[in-house]
């Protein structure tokens, strides 16, 4: 499996990371090196093996579906790069 620059560009887009076109060949090569390393996994016989979902055999605890720590709008917005009138502000999303 070899990754070309188009695939690299598609992955960067999916990850929402801007990559300049002249950087794509180097990125594709890095992906290929790492994926080449990962390919070793194909040697393993995994027939009938369950994929691990939890490393410790435990049932997740349940709790009442209620608000535990609400009413702290100011704290939630305190670190926002742009907060206005009690909201996070972002560039226009809908035309």
């Amino acid at each position: 499996m070899s990754i070309d620059t188009d695939t690299a560009a598609r992955v960067a887009k999916l990850a929402r990371i801007k990559v300049e076109p002249d950087q794509l060949p180097a990125l594709a090569e890095e992906f290929n090196n790492i994926l080449g390393f990962i390919e070793q996994l194909n040697e393993v016989d995994v027939e009938g093996v369950e994929p691990m979902t939890s490393v410790t055999p435990q049932r997740l605890k349940r709790r009442e579906d209620v608000v535990t720590e609400g009413d702290q709008q100011d704290k939630i917005l305190a670190n926002a790069p742009d907060a206005r009138e009690g909201f996070f502000a972002v560039p226009k999303v809908v035309e």
Partner: peptide, 14 residues
């Protein structure tokens, strides 16, 4: 091909 296979290998390592 990648993620599920890796999780199966993880089961074997454990």
């Amino acid at each position: 091909a990648y993620y599920n296979r890796a999780r199966k290998v993880r089961t074997l390592i454990k």
